[in-house]
Amino acid sequence: MPESSLPGGFINHVVRVGATVRRPASARTGFIGDLLKMFEASGWPGAPRYRGIDEEGREVLTYLDGHVAWEPQQPLAVYSDESLLRVTQLVREFHDLTAGTALAGSHEVVCHNDLAPKNTVYQPVGGALRPVAFIDWDLAAPGARIHDVAHVCWQYLGLGPSVGDASEAARRLRLIADSYELVNCRDLVSVILWWQDRCWRGIEAAADSGDLAMIRLRDAGVVTEVQEAYQWVSDQRVNLDRALR
């Protein structure tokens, strides 16, 4: 079958072959395969299905049709409260599925660790685009619920200097915490800052060691962008924390 490159992949070269997606395998392919097979066995529709390794050593996943929000400008429905609530519900669903399993080990759940609009498939539901699934599970690992919830807050709210209304961001931050029913929501802003600090430092360190993908990210200005986002959250921390009390 012919292959066609899928847009949006900045780190891995991902292609579509018929009704499947092929992506480079890694040392974590076994874990990710087991995770996706568990989702399939449970009937959870929010992730692609794992179909093994092809003759070129690539992971084979089912292709999820829909709109992937990887470009900077998106339809308003992608950023709506309704879509945000559905994202949060999907996160809670797969967290609850993985809690107490061998894959989570001694941790609360298995986390996706890269939840963002660019890794979300949207489909028309009731006349508007709504999130239906997450893709790019290659960073999934055992972790704490709050880690994924904080990443959702950072990425789906676009927390950073481009936020026009900090009070609106604070309202939506509380919306996410309440929708998820997060127990330790007072720590949420601290974990958002932890993610941002970890992100830019990780890119820098990997780029300095010669990782070509991370060099491309740094050259594209991602380190500076994340540092500025970190500073914005730090400056707004009192207001954001207040919304979670």
Rank of each mutant, 00 (worst) to 15 (best):
Tyr180Ser: 05
Phe39Glu: 02
Ala41Glu: 15
Phe94Pro: 00
Leu35Val: 03
Tyr230Pro: 00
Pro161Phe: 06
Gly127Gln: 11
Val17Asp: 08
Arg174Met: 06
Gln236Ile: 05
Gly52Met: 10
Val226Phe: 07
Leu188Thr: 02
Leu175Glu: 03
Leu182Trp: 01
Leu244Pro: 08
Ala116Lys: 11
Trp195Pro: 00
Gln74Asp: 04
Val125Cys: 04
Tyr63Lys: 02
Val125Ser: 08
Leu84Lys: 02
Leu84Asp: 03
Asn184Phe: 01
Gly164Pro: 02
Phe31Asn: 09
Ile11Ala: 14
Met1Asn: 07
Ala128Ile: 08
Tyr79Asn: 12
Thr29Ser: 14
Ser26Phe: 02
Trp195Arg: 15
Asn239Val: 14
Val238Ile: 11
Cys199His: 01
Val189Pro: 01
Leu35Asp: 03
Val125Arg: 11
Arg245His: 13
Ala177Thr: 08
Gly46Trp: 01
Arg172Asn: 04
Glu93Pro: 00
Ala144Ser: 12
Gly158Val: 09
Arg216Phe: 01
Val91Arg: 00
Ser42Lys: 12
Asp138Val: 07
Asp96Val: 01
His107Trp: 15
Ala207Arg: 04
Leu90Asn: 00
Val238Ala: 14
Leu159Gln: 04
Val109Thr: 13
Trp137Glu: 05
Val17His: 06
Asp241Asn: 13
Leu85Gln: 13
Asp208Met: 11
Leu139Cys: 07
Glu181Gln: 15
Pro75Gln: 10
Arg216Ala: 13
Asp114Ser: 09
Arg22Ser: 04
Ala141Val: 12
Asp165Trp: 02
Pro75Val: 11
Pro72Asp: 05
Leu103Tyr: 08
Thr62Met: 08
Ile146Gln: 05
Glu181Met: 08
Tyr230Arg: 15
Arg242Asn: 05
Asp138Trp: 01
Ser167Ala: 15
Glu204Gly: 02
Gly66Gln: 09
Ala166Glu: 10
Gly105His: 14
Gly160Lys: 08
Val222Ser: 09
Val121Ala: 00
Leu90Met: 15
Ser167Ile: 05
Glu181Asp: 15
Arg22Met: 02
Gln89Ala: 12
Glu56Ser: 13
Met1Arg: 10
Ala69Asn: 02
Val17Cys: 12
Trp200Asn: 00
Ser190Pro: 00
Met38Tyr: 03
Ser83Gln: 09
Trp44Leu: 15
Gly210Asp: 05
Asp136Tyr: 09
Asp138Ser: 05
Asp219Leu: 09
Ala220Cys: 08
Asp148Glu: 03
Ala169Lys: 00
Ser106Cys: 03
Asn239Gly: 15
Val110Ala: 06
Glu55Asp: 14
Ser234Lys: 12
Gly46Phe: 07
Lys37Glu: 15
Leu159Glu: 02
Leu188His: 03
Asp165Arg: 14
Gly57Pro: 04
Thr120Ser: 08
Asp138Ala: 01
Tyr156Cys: 12
Val17Trp: 00
Ser162Asp: 13
Glu225Leu: 11
Val233Leu: 06
Leu212Thr: 14
Ala141Gln: 14
Gly30Phe: 04
Leu84Phe: 09
Trp194Lys: 10
Val189Asn: 03
Arg92Val: 06
Ala243Trp: 04
Met214Asp: 08
